[in-house]
């Protein structure tokens, strides 16, 4: 199977790739928001902990 055939998806390229595109965006957003929230939480708590100890 050639690479061109693969991307053409038997004429359904627009549908197949847009469905996978949306899926990747949604999955990526889930990861991004979870990790950002975790970093923010830890940073804030560390800051608060630091100011309490002073």
């Amino acid at each position: 199977m050639s690479l061109n055939n693969f991307f053409a998806m038997g004429g359904y390229a627009a549908y197949v790739w847009s469905a996978y595109g949306i899926s990747f965006i949604v999955l990526f957003l889930n990861i991004f928001l979870a990790v950002r929230n975790e970093r923010k939480t830890i940073d804030e708590l560390k800051k608060r902990l630091g100011s309490n100890n002073k």
Binding site: F6, M9, Y12, Y15, A19
Partner: peptide, 20 residues
């Protein structure tokens, strides 16, 4: 996307099943 054959009725469009 690569190994599975196209569907006998729906062709390659059926591959959306793997995310849907």
């Amino acid at each position: 996307l690569v190994l599975a054959p196209a569907d006998y009725q729906q062709g390659d469009s059926f591959r959306i099943i793997y995310v849907h």
